[in-house]
Write a protein that binds this DNA or RNA. Structure first.
Lengths: 292, 292
DNA sequence: CTATGCCGATAGCCGGAGGCTATCGTTGCG
DNA sequence: CGCAACGATAGCCTCCGGCTATCGGCATAG
């Protein structure tokens, strides 16, 4: 039994679409093919990766841990094939993190319809807050403001979530309904290594700022952050929306008091005036595609 | 015709080993299997990726461009499979760049023999000068000193190469036998984005320092650096050894006068005292395996 | 000049991955 | 109760990716 590329693709697609059928459509193959691919993968592991129950399919704890790496494989392969065949995708969409979830899949559906040509998906970690927009690695991205990019990029808000603090299971804070600066004093924090505007603002005195920080641990990706939190290495400043897609046993999200919210936004290069992009942006302007 | 994982693996192995037979051995498959895999890949592209001539196999211009991405695919897949099967590799060896060449393959052979268990290869870009040693992503690495890591890492020199400047074909400097600071005044430089100790030293007045710099362009990887140089976006400070494995049409390497050399070194965590590592280091102590 | 060996390509074979269509079992809902 | 949705199963075909055996080109040794 072998771990093959189509099987990994199928796994990622199912996790993203939340359905075997939808995954099959998005991959351009039949539904039984997707079922078989995922089953093969699960046979290799010996444990289930996806839970099929009423109301869709969700990854298991193990599946969620594997997902980020699976996306990396698919992304690297797509890159390779693009160079190999010389076909440049019409549009590349960048996402922070693994980009699994309803927002991603809905947005992609709209983009694919509006674009016509091939649309590529690319994952980015904390090391590039612009999700490849500045380097040209992507043309359109779902980013987490604020971005310190001057006026090179244009953004349009998509959604906002309450801020939350991720703490390990069993932490004294884990049971609270909400936490404030006083509760967070003397903590070690897991901090995005290369993206600390939000963090710096958080440490500023006043408002919800927490100044009593015992230490910082760097992290390059969401998954790593949650691993570190679960391991008790520190707590992290995230959003409640993160919990939806990255929920992980051993990590509890506690809302931050004070009503602070953090946003997710669409971004693109102001200088990019290609009809492809403007067309897609127009299609995305109608907000019906947004989940909820 | 499909781009499959084993085909990419075969391509990478042949490029690294410089021979179909050796690649087959290192992959644990037969030689015809490797031949067929590479041929399939070349059929997809429509152009040759590897040149077979007397004295070994070398990638073509196109092959070299694809190699870095192919390595990324293999690396991501290995990561994924490691998590999937739960088998942790005995030892992970980190390399800066694509790590194709005799040094890599010889070193790996010695490590594999001395280690016994599974040995993983992992590529790193400029964003991590320690090649994953500090984060635990690797246990042993081929790095480019100097490293600003305090005394966390121990290093052992492997080889030194003359420094050279990469300039685009057709540049006035391209024909010279050697260049000095005076020749390099007023240039735009392509600089590793996150690894500029060497660069800063280079800009210091005196010695071979060049102070008259017109601008800087950031780069995250060797391949990107050479792309930028070939495109005329700037010139880059590299080593003559780089030319051996990354030779690229459109880029000429001109030696730097003054006899400056840059070194390649083996590095590991000082705190890592596992028998696996010490055994491998002892095996690598006998220098017979070094190329040339 | 021939013999020998090295190395990659070719031929012919087989098992399994991965695709399809058709159909069944469950489950939720009108 | 019947229908629709969705995933699993069954049966079939193609081609990838592995093997062994062998051929062809090109060194180098005798």
């Amino acid at each position: 039994m072998e771990v093959t590329l189509p099987a990994i693709r199928a796994f990622v697609a199912v996790a993203r679409e939340g359905s075997f059928g939808a995954a099959a459509t998005s991959l351009g193959v039949s539904q039984p093919t997707v079922s078989a691919a995922v089953r093969r993968l699960e046979t290799v592991v010996g444990r289930p990766l996806l839970v099929r129950d009423r109301d869709g399919v969700r990854p298991t704890e193990l599946g969620r841990r594997l997902l980020a790496h699976a996306v990396a494989v698919v992304s690297a392969t797509d890159d390779f094939e693009t160079l190999l065949t010389g076909e440049t995708p019409e549009l590349t969409v960048g996402f922070m993190g693994e980009a699994a979830g309803p927002l991603t899949s809905r947005l992609l559906a709209v983009v694919r319809r509006a674009c016509g040509g091939e649309v590529r998906l690319r994952r980015f970690d904390f090391d590039d807050p612009s999700c490849g927009l500045l380097t040209g690695a992507s043309d359109l991205a779902v980013v987490w403001p604020p971005l310190e990019t001057g006026d090179a990029l244009e953004t349009r808000p998509l959604r906002t979530d309450p801020r939350a603090v991720a703490v390990p299971l069993g932490d004294p804070l884990a049971g609270l309904a909400a936490v404030g600066p006083a509760d967070l004093a003397g903590r070690v924090w897991v901090v995005p290594r290369s993206r600390d505007e939000v963090w710096r603002a958080f440490r500023r005195p006043g408002a919800a700022g927490v100044t009593d920080v015992a230490g910082e641990v760097g992290s390059d990706a969401i998954e790593e952050t949650l691993e570190l939190v679960a391991a008790g290495r520190g707590v992290a400043l995230l959003s409640e929306g993160t919990d939806e897609h990255y929920a992980r046993a051993g990590v509890v999200f506690v809302p931050l008091s004070g009503g602070q919210r953090c946003s997710t936004a669409l971004a693109w290069r102001r200088a990019d005036t290609r009809p492809v992009l403007t067309g897609v942006l127009r299609a995305l302007g109608a907000r019906e595609w947004l989940p909820e």
